[in-house]
Each structure stands twice: as C-alpha cells, then as structure tokens.
Design a protein around this nucleic acid. Structure first.
Lengths: 213, 213
DNA sequence: GTCTATAAATGGATAGAC
DNA sequence: GTCTATCCATTTATAGAC
C-alpha cells in the first residue's frame, strides 16, 4: 500500500519552503556575487538552489534577467543603510563621524564589494543595470550626505557653497584606498578600530576645511 | 614554375610584422578590456589578431596566461604617467594641481577604466593578478604622492604627520564620483575644463587643511 | 611555425513525461 | 509546476598536414 514508506518526503515537496523564488534568488545571488556573471552557469545556480534547470527557467526567462533581479535585490537591501540614519540635527562632528562609519562599513561589506565587482564588470554589456545601480546606491548616498551638509550649513555649522561637491569630497576620502585594497588584495578589511581611526581623520580634515572658525 | 605567382604574398608572411607577439597582445588587449575575461573567446582573439588558434596557443599556453600578460602590459604602459612627472620642488599649490590633473586624466582614461573593470572583476579568480595590478598602479601612485607631500613638508610648506594617509585622502578626493560615473554610466567623462575646476577645488581643500598658515 | 579540422567539454535553453 | 533527458551552439585546447 502507499503508506509503506510513510517517512519519505516526496522529492517535489519544499521543506519549509521559503517560496522557490527566494530560494533561487538566494543561491543565484551567492554565486553571481562570488563568481561574476560569466563564470556562473545556470546549471550551477539550479544545483545550488536545489531545483532543476527547467524549474529555474520557469521562474526567470533567461540568465540576464536572473542576473538583473539579483542586482536589484542587492541594491534594495543596501538602501536602508544608505539613508543616513538618525543624524538629522546632530552636531556636525558627531553627524559626520556617524555617516562616515556607516558609509565605510557599507562600502567594505562583502555583499557591497560583490555587487560592485560584478556591476562594474558587466555594465558595458548591461548599461541599464549600471545606471540602476548607480542611482540606487552611490547617488543616494551622495544625496543623503549632501542634504546633511546643507542642513548643517543652514544651522551655521559649516561654510559650504556647493554641498554636492563637498559631499563628493567627503565620500571620496572615506572610500580612500581601503575599498581598492579589499577589492584587489585578499588582504582582510581593516578592523573596526582602524576604520574608526581613519574616519576620524577624514572628519577632522573635512571640518578643518569647511567648519566655521 | 614557382614564379608563376610572383606577387602573391605567402599566407605565412607577416606584412610589416611587428612580431606576432605584439600583434596578438594588441588584439587581445582590445578585446579583453572591452569585453572582459569571460566574454572574450580565444577564437575571437585569434580572428582579431589575424592568426589561427593554433598559432595563438603556440605563443600563449592558455587563456589565463594571455590574460595575465595583457594586464601586465597595460600596467606597464600606465606607470610612466604614475611617476609624478616634473613636480619635484614645485611650490605645493602648483605641484598638487599638476599631480591632481595627471592623476584624474589617468583614472578616467578608457584604457585605465578597462583594466580596472576587468581586474576588479577577475581578481577573485586571479588573486596574483589583483595584487600585481594594485602594486603596479594605485600603490605606486600613492607612494609618489606621499613622497611629494613629504618633500613639501620638509620644505615647510605643509603640516603633515602621516604623508601616506594624507596622500590617500588627496587621492580619494581626486577620484571622487567621476570615476564611478565613467564606470557605470555611458555618460561621457567630464571635459578638461570641468576636471580642472574639480582638481582646483580639491587642492584648495587640501591646502586649507594641511597648508601652513 | 602556421594552418585546417576536430576533439572534448560545457554552456544556455527546451521538449515532453508526470 | 517540476523533473529528466536532450538539443544545439560555443568554448578551450589539440592533432596532424604542410
């Protein structure tokens, strides 16, 4: 009778399935961000997601679309960090320290490094994706910093004529070479103490140049 | 007789051949920097170089080695620019302007963007290549800037305790968002006037923070 | 050394059973 | 919806003639 194998879970049953879509996105995200677009095969994605290739193609019409979905999802995850959290009204020194730390943590996070790597690499072949990433990520960060600087100026804490340029300078200093080293050397990222020290230097330099005397 | 086709150039003759090695390197360089590693096939390289695949493999044992050779060659080409040319002894304002302009031009040049793209993308699979690129390019730039800053400090023109950190801040500001925009948007690079204006801003900010009053 | 032709493997994508 | 099995194009790399 059918109950002769009562404990066998049918192969098609999803065990506590978090909907196959997320299951696929998760596996594909890991592979794409680690291996890049070209080196990641749909075969591997299907295997890692525990589904067949046919199922994979039932959810995403082709590789390019799956790739775009991954990048979009990763951008969406990073946005909450980007919105400079709880700095409105903070005195400029504390505010910039907080922004700087958050920003550097984000830039050096494995997820952000992975997306950056793959988007920079593939944006010539996926121009729309490059644009989407820039506007979802860096542009928002820059806007948020710029808005904070403008508010600080309006409170009389900074002397700045072009907030966007100033934000760009701050952003560039924060990124520094650490980002590059994380991208190119298997060197570990600087620890929290080193990062903190660096951010303090940046903030000091910035205020020395733009602060009110 | 053999002279029945006097004007036929044998297929194997190199017409003004700049040695097949450079011929291959040139074609492969173009393709790799435009299309990335994964999207560039050895077939395409052979076709573009005007040789057969067998010949290609006679010169380079495999795709990875050819790729490494390309990156190495491209790094070598950029080195002359990196060495801060003729700034020794220049007053700090002029020196930094010149360094900043040279650096920004280099960073935004199509060749440098191409190498950056492909090295950043592939360094997880070619760790040695990532290291080589970092030390041949960015690290040298940083060293050169640092040396210049140190000299300026010794002349009493700057107040700097850590030249390397200061160089990193300067470098980061110069790169700014323009680099990112060139990488991610089909947006054209800023023209010479815009770049010049930006560099002046950076130098002003830097000197306001590190200059002697 | 260089070519043509091909081997061997892998990739993206689909057909058809269940 | 999901799987197994497969098609077809492409890729890296090599064998063998000249």
């Amino acid at each position: 009778m059918a109950s002769s194998e009562p404990f066998v879970i049918p192969a098609t049953a999803a065990i506590a399935s978090p909907s196959k879509t997320t299951q696929i996105l998760e596996a594909a995200g890991r592979l794409f961000l680690e291996g890049g677009y070209g080196a990641t095969s749909m075969d591997a994605v299907a295997r890692a997601a525990g589904v067949s290739k046919a199922t994979l193609y039932a959810y995403f019409t082709n590789k390019a679309e799956l790739f775009s979905a991954i990048v979009a999802a990763e951008c969406a995850r990073a946005v909450p960090m980007v919105v400079c959290n709880n700095v409105d009204g903070l005195p400029v020194h504390e505010g910039l320290l907080k922004i700087g730390r958050t920003l550097l943590d984000l830039l050096l996070s494995p997820a952000a490094l992975g997306v950056y790597r793959v988007v920079v690499a593939e944006s010539p072949r996926f121009p729309e994706l490059g644009r989407a990433f820039y506007h979802a990520g860096p542009a928002r960060t820059l806007g948020a910093i710029s808005a904070y600087l403008q508010a600080a100026r309006d409170r009389g804490e900074l002397t700045i004529t072009e907030p966007t340029i100033a934000a760009e300078l701050f952003w560039g200093m924060i990124r520094g070479h650490a980002h590059l080293r994380c991208l190119l050397l298997d060197d570990k990222a600087p620890d929290a103490a080193q990062r903190d020290c660096y951010v303090q230097t940046v903030v000091t330099v910035f205020i020395r140049s733009f602060g009110v005397s």
